[in-house]
């Protein structure tokens, strides 16, 4: 077990190093940051000065070494646009993104499981077919279109929900939360629904499939033969067996949710890391882009690592076979 954990840890570090190289080399060569920080009529001598002070004239190797050294200490330099330390900017935005992603995931789990169970147990009812249809639409509409439609409907036409931002937030230590104010909760609804719709679809289909498969197993047949009630069989046995893979997938998908928040945050102007990233891409703000990539990778790698280890704890048979079940 220790060897396995160690092996996994080394692998995770390897991933982070690879990502570091990618992050550095990609963002080093994209766009010209100098034009972003000086105005149109700045003389070339001044531009050269700026270029030099940013270290953009040094050999690439030197730049990379400097970059890795700083990143290891969570120092990503100063944002070109905001002239503030990138780490501080990201930390300030992180609660917004994590809160949105968590809400979206919880919504997706609750509704996904409910709808999945229902459509597995009542396969041929109208409602089950409606759920199937919703799930198909959920994966067939691009996220941004859903977001704009929701804004059009609930903010502009009906005026029920705010169209942008987080509302009022409460600060608890370095964390800020919108969960404790009415306006914060209202602001959370549409972005979470938009972001969670795809995951909900995924979970619903997964639950339905797992349920159907489990219900066919001998184990359930035995349960039936033993004369257990349908309710006990469905929820005590079938659903319980279904939940392990569902929770695993939801956990693994959490990373994707964070990354997909880029689109949702852009549509709803949600002040999270994704919006910061999009703004950085538009402004060729290299330090922020690089830091975002590394931070998100760190979150992914950590989640995957933890899930891997938990999986192995739960099911020792997997120890040798589950290679890289990301």
């Amino acid at each position: 077990m220790l060897a396995f954990t160690l092996h996994r840890a080394i692998q995770a570090i390897g991933v982070m190093i690879a990502v570091g190289i990618i992050a550095f080399s990609m963002f080093r060569f994209a766009g010209d940051p100098v034009n972003q920080i000086v105005s149109l009529d700045t003389p070339p001598a001044e531009r050269a000065e700026v270029r030099k002070s940013l270290g953009l004239d040094d050999p690439v190797i030197v730049q990379f070494a400097r970059y890795v050294g700083n990143a290891a200490q969570f120092k990503f330099g100063v944002s070109y646009q905001f002239r503030q330390p990138v780490t501080a900017l990201l930390m300030e935005r992180m609660p917004a993104t994590l809160e949105l992603a968590t809400c979206a995931t919880v919504l997706a789990m609750v509704f996904g499981i409910l709808m999945g169970v229902y459509s597995a147990l009542r396969r041929d009812t109208l409602l089950a077919k409606a759920f199937q249809a919703i799930s198909l639409i959920g994966i067939s509409l691009p996220t941004f279109l859903i977001g704009i439609l929701l804004i059009y409907l609930f903010s502009v036409t009906l005026g029920w929900l705010p169209s942008f931002g987080r509302g009022d937030v409460v600060r608890i230590g370095w964390w800020t939360t919108g969960l404790l104010t009415v306006s914060g909760l209202k602001a959370l609804i549409m972005p979470s629904v938009t972001l969670g719709l795809f995951q909900m679809t995924l979970i619903m289909r997964l639950v339905r499939a797992e349920m159907l498969e489990v219900l066919r197993t001998d184990y359930i047949r035995f349960a039936r033969a033993r004369g257990l009630t349908t309710r006990a069989i469905h929820f005590g046995h079938a659903l319980k067996n279904t939940l392990v893979p569902v929770i695993t997938v939801a956990g693994l998908q959490f990373g994707s949710v964070i990354a997909f928040a880029i689109i949702t945050e852009t549509v709803f102007q949600w002040p999270g890391m994704g919006l910061l990233f999009v703004q950085a891409v538009q402004n060729v703000d290299i330090p922020i882009m690089a830091a975002y990539l590394l931070m998100v990778s760190l979150i992914f790698v950590t989640i995957n690592f933890v899930v891997d280890i938990l999986y192995t704890v739960v099911d020792p048979r997997l120890r040798s076979t589950i290679s890289g079940a990301a």
Partner: peptide
Amino acid sequence: IMRIADVQLTFPAILIALLINGVVKSV
């Protein structure tokens, strides 16, 4: 090959596509 796959699986496709797009464009 599988290690490369592992690294890549860490990221959603949309993020990878954005990054590759950026790399190619800048090159």
